[in-house]
Amino acid sequence: MAESLYIPKETDKAGIYQAILPQIEALISGETDLYANLANVAAVLKEAFGFFWVGFYLVKDNELVLGPFQGPLACTRISFGKGVCGTAWKESRTQLVPDVDLFPGHIACSSASKSEIVVPGIKDGKVWCVLDVDSDQLDDFDQNDKIFLEELMQLLSAKQSK
């Protein structure tokens, strides 16, 4: 089990992702419990980037149900196709939203959230969860986030036993 996280201070966002992804892979490689892994991944992302909210919603009984997260209180359940998370699930693709107020049907779990990226976890062609990352800044996510968070979700999905 890793007891510390190395986050380079003098680099760009891509450099931080390049430093933490191998650490996350090592962290989850020896752990079989899904919730423990999701909790640690949320903690790593929150610590590395200081995002406003980082967490997972898992597909259960045909809705997204709140899983491990870091940040303020969150919506507990999200319907298929609703909001940014439900849309990522429905479309099986990443949603990068520079201004959540302009996203049709956005679910405002917190009025402090200004931009968002949601990345689905896909196993055997089906979405099993989504990673939801919110910022309290407009236009805070870019292609680096999309590329590296999609890579992260591929790691988690490969480990997922569903």
Rank of each mutant, 00 (worst) to 15 (best):
Q70H: 05
C109P: 03
L64H: 12
V65W: 02
D101E: 13
I107G: 05
F103G: 06
G71P: 05
Q70P: 00
I78K: 00
E63S: 14
K114P: 01
K60V: 12
D99F: 02
G105H: 08
L96N: 06
C75Q: 10
C109F: 13
P104G: 11
G105M: 04
G67E: 07
K60C: 01
C75P: 04
A108D: 03
E116A: 07
C109Y: 14
V97Q: 03
S111K: 12
T87N: 11
R77M: 09
L96E: 09
C109H: 05
L66W: 06
P120F: 05
D61V: 02
I117G: 08
A112M: 10
V119C: 01
A108P: 00
P98F: 07
K60P: 00
G86E: 04
P120E: 11
V100I: 14
S113M: 11
V119E: 00
F80S: 04
V118F: 01
P98M: 10
G71H: 13
I107Y: 04
K82N: 14
F69C: 15
D101Q: 15
G71F: 12
D99Q: 01
K90Q: 13
G83Y: 14
S92F: 08
S79N: 13
D61K: 13
S110P: 03
G81I: 07
V119H: 03
T87W: 10
S113A: 15
F69H: 15
G81T: 12
S115N: 00
V65T: 08
G67R: 05
D61H: 06
